[in-house]
Design a binder for these strands. Structure first.
Lengths: 192, 192, 192, 192
DNA sequence: AATGAATGAGGGTTCATTCAT
DNA sequence: TATGAATGAACCCTCATTCAT
């Protein structure tokens, strides 16, 4: 029973991702989402108290899905360079597979809600920390030169975002760009 | 007369920057903008046929202001590294001075309008080209190693954006980060 | 079984008195009533076909309770003055004990339903008749002068209502007011 | 200009009296009121921020109209009995001429809004005070015996209300009832 | 028989846009 | 030309009612 309820809630969340990502928060109508989820308009309100909260939870859902996959793809790798390469590759793949969620996340920022803004800042921060500690590992293992890990992490993530965005809007083969960019970055931080 | 009209139109554009950047497109009300511009609600429609078009023209106005300043700050510099450093510094300064416009540009993306989206892609493309040709200059002058100029430009601009965004939302001294990042980037693309 | 059903129906009626009297017809939600009655929302519809009918039957239930008590408190008294005094006192007591029902009856009038309106008119009419015949008794026994019994009954009931309403909303000792009013009324209709 | 605005506001108030008195607060739709006032739905919101406030102001408007007329009909009369008779007669006439307002006031009580409730209590209180002071005058002039003025005022107003209500819902000639009732009341409070 | 998840009609309110002044 | 009062389409949300379990 509770399982079924949970499933219904997830149906609505997934439908809302489709609609919100296509229409944006303000142009999306609750009815659209209801239709997309195959439920009645009122049913949404059984699970979410308002459009704003639905949007919020949908964002959280999407971000959590991203984070979960990040962890799944990174954990277990030892070599720092390898981790960063893997992270880059994963991001490109994620953009491809979850283009809707990705566009959502990229294009519906602060607007709507302070809380979402904060959630994003937090997530970004956590990822920056994680990358920074990978870089610290690289430095202590002698792979990387003594750059500021936080700054290097910021630079790295900026590049990843750029490539990911390119993946999203161009139809080109961004793997190639990714390799080139990683080359520049690794050159930038490697020993001699 | 036409001069006065032109001035009035610019008043409205500037007012709309203030209001749109604070409230976002959907939460900004035409009345707010009218009040901010010191004109009647109906007057806006003498100059702009709709809210969407006003937003569009406002965006174009803001972007053109940015581009004009970019050109003013870059032209005349010969050394490639110097150009890139200068561009980075300029961006940080611009974010500070025109925080409203900057936030506007960062946080009101594709939504609203396909045309704006395209304008942004074009502007980005032009700036990428410009940076790429600077990098080509650096390569031929022997300063930079043989990396793909377009990719390097992308990487560079990604970093610039990241630092600029940090400037916008943090109150920290981002000049420091900027220097560190430039160091990484220059290491990444320089000859040995 | 039928007994149990009847009990269940009465539970709902009593719960609805609580909720309707607190919230009013339009602000009361069927769910509130269900919760107050300790049954499921759907169960109410097993016993009452609609919110309106529930309200109607609840009103009838409340009014019948009132009438039953009126009769219980009046029957057996012989002296006309005594009957009227007793009726007054009873009403004040009833307001105190069944404040909810009383407020209900006072503040949810014609609105909602023509039928309820009519029921109220009828009840009022019957009570007026009863009081009038008491007054006729008083006249023929020589206690009261030859006033129009119907008019006197109207006047008397108006006073009773006023004192009852005062009891409901003030926390004062209305018995005192009641005595004074009865004095005026009895002076008004008594011989010499 | 402001005059025209004021007129428009009054149009809406008057239309809302018609609609609210016919339909009740909850069944009245803003659109109905708009149509009745001959304006667009949005126009109402130019003058009143919400349905509740419109209702409130409408009530105040109606009550003020009543009070103004009460004063107009009472002032200048010296004899206490005459004042009370005149007040009774006026109320009957007012019910006839402004049946809508009257029904409104009688049948839309506390519900909707605490503030309205208070306004009503206040108005009733003020009128009771006024009648009480008239009765005090009657006592000191020797017309009335030493009854409690406040209680007598309550009794009197209760009778007035009853006759007024009868006027509203019956089509009978209530003047007759009024005269009989006044007779009872005056008997009740007069010196021997 | 009892339930409560699902429904969707209905209505209050907002605000871009119009147009008479 | 400039205005802002008037407009009504659009949309979120509520809640009485239904019906599968």
């Amino acid at each position: 029973m509770a399982v079924k309820e949970e499933a219904r809630k997830e149906d609505i969340l997934k439908a809302s991702i489709r609609v919100f990502s296509k229409e944006g928060f303000y142009n999306a109508r609750m009815e659209d989402i209801a239709v997309a989820a195959g439920v009645g308009k009122g049913t949404i309100y059984e699970y979410f108290p308002s459009k704003k909260v639905l949007f919020q939870e949908m964002m959280r859902y999407a971000v959590e899905m991203y984070i979960a996959e990040v962890e799944r793809h990174i954990t277990g790798i030892k070599d720092a360079k390898e981790v960063l390469s893997s992270f880059m590759r994963f991001n490109i793949d994620f953009m491809r597979e979850h283009a809707e969620i990705a566009k959502m996340v990229i294009s519906q920022p602060n607007e709507v809600n302070e809380e979402i803004m904060e959630m994003f800042m937090n997530v970004r921060h956590r990822i920056e920390e994680a990358i920074a500690s990978v870089i610290i590992g690289g430095i202590s293992s002698g792979s990387f030169r003594k750059i500021k890990p936080r700054i290097a992490a910021m630079a790295f993530l900026a590049m990843v975002s750029r490539v990911a965005a390119a993946t999203l809007y161009n139809c080109e083969h961004e793997e190639y760009n990714a390799v080139e960019m990683l080359d520049i970055f690794f050159h930038g931080i490697s020993m001699v």
